[in-house]
Design a protein around this nucleic acid. Sequence first.
DNA 1: TTGTACGCGTTATCAA
DNA 2: TTGATAACGCGTACAA
Lengths: 333, 333
Amino acid sequence: MIKIRDIAHRAGASIATVSRVVNGSGYVSADMRARIEAAVAELGYRPNAGARMMRSGSSRMVGVLLPALDVHFFGILAHTVEQALFARGYQAMICSTAESPDHEAAYVAAMLAQQVDGVILAAVTSDNSAVARLNAARVPIVAVDRALPGTPAVTADHHAGGRMLARHLLDLGHRSIGVVGAPGHSAPVQDRLAGIVAELAGAGLAPQSIRLGPEHSFEACRSLAADLLSDGMPTALIGISDMAAIGALHAAVARGLRVPDDLSVIGFDDLPAARYTIPQLTTIAQPIRQIGEAAVDTLIALMRGTPPPPPPALPLTLIARGTTAARAGVTLP
Amino acid sequence: MIKIRDIAHRAGASIATVSRVVNGSGYVSADMRARIEAAVAELGYRPNAGARMMRSGSSRMVGVLLPALDVHFFGILAHTVEQALFARGYQAMICSTAESPDHEAAYVAAMLAQQVDGVILAAVTSDNSAVARLNAARVPIVAVDRALPGTPAVTADHHAGGRMLARHLLDLGHRSIGVVGAPGHSAPVQDRLAGIVAELAGAGLAPQSIRLGPEHSFEACRSLAADLLSDGMPTALIGISDMAAIGALHAAVARGLRVPDDLSVIGFDDLPAARYTIPQLTTIAQPIRQIGEAAVDTLIALMRGTPPPPPPALPLTLIARGTTAARAGVTLP
DNA sequence: TTGTACGCGTTATCAA
DNA sequence: TTGATAACGCGTACAA
């Protein structure tokens, strides 16, 4: 590993001067700066992260703690966040907690030891000892996707999204509406559900039935939906996420139901896969990439101590595609 | 931040002894060990990663460099690799190169500065200056998904997979077979294509047409397939990946084709989404999770200097589902 | 404008 | 079995 002394020697300068050039601090003559920069480029010098970290207390790293990377939504979010951080000169330390508070705690401890400058966090639970430790160490946190008490959050309005799901089906004349989704413990899922229930209540209705499971996979959600459908037939089914909706779609097809003629299905997220079901999935689009970038902008402001930018609008959009239709016998205005 | 001196003071020991306990090295009396462990637990001490790194030259981190995290295949791979590393006491530093050699180079530089103990890499290109720098720094590397000259690799046999794709269609009586996929520059894509061509050649055939694009998304692949179909109709279409196959499926449906009656479609990977198309996608399953774990096992052996475990079988499996059928007019034996 | 020298928290060596 | 202490590479007061 090539170190600061090597550069100093090569450029005929002292290590202090090299440091000043590398960090852009203090006065250096143009001539000296050029010599040093040349040496840096030539030898491919990079300051040792450990030494720098020890000296300055900052690692130029941001921890990104997500419940899973094999769930496509979080994969996309991780990608966006990382690219945004990279563009601003920060390293992302991406970890996936596997929806486990224990893993989360272990990763937070590791991040503290790494002296990360900030953390972007989609927390497993909202009463969170990991968050408390981060706060105690005065590490700025931005919550993403799911709110966290006492922490700036960048998240879509899941409750409003829930209302939009129900509203769309109500507008199509549906009155018997089932709900499936996972993971049941997650705050966004609960928020969307609450929105659905609230909107239905406004129409004097309640969900025909609700099935939330622990595991967020196509297969688990298909099975949830199959159960629901065999217990009694709604005219429409809400998937709390696109994964759930796609699982539901298959449960319906397996029963010989035609979608959307016999059963309407709607999802949430607008993952790439939503446009590639047959028929194409009606869903509420969540601006994942904007969420990632806004989270990064907010965190960077926090780390610098500057006022965070105004929270951007994170619009939820109904994407009406092929899996929802007016209830049989209903004529729309 | 609580440091080793605090523990030493609290336990009435010297920092050297605390270090021995924390690292499990050297002799310490049971009594002293107990006192120190108690203090560590009580105060929540974690050795400062920067200091440790500077002293020992090791960061206990493994760099994981993938072309993208928003491609579901890599999201799953990242997840597996990270969980496996975590279980063995290593931190993953996951980066996504966005299929760009420049990003790749920047991340490798960062990893070198971080003094990662090893790297798991799905390289953008195979003649790779990033790899050369890693080798120069004597950082062990394991190639994953795509082979890299001079580097131990854990990857499915893409060429054999290509043959399996063609073989399945040949067995069903197809003689006019198109190929779509992306990204065209990627080695696995090229290898699978070569396998397809080889297997077809064995039957005295060549692909009816081939369309490879730069961008690996449903939409880009759908458009590729739409082009291909409007230039001339094969009886079967190979997607070089499930994404490509799903795009192709939609291009076919958009032309009013029935799958598999008018056109057979087959994919590669067996992503979760493959089972959730309609009809369900026939594909070649790649054992993603095994690949991730094998890569970690191999890398850990390399880092420890122990002989790497024998490369596990990474079986490719034909999953015959609903999108392939015998060519019209062909009776299977 | 440039250089010297100290200390950041650990681990490892050596002496006790 | 334990403790004192010298590095590790860097950033920054402070001196020149």
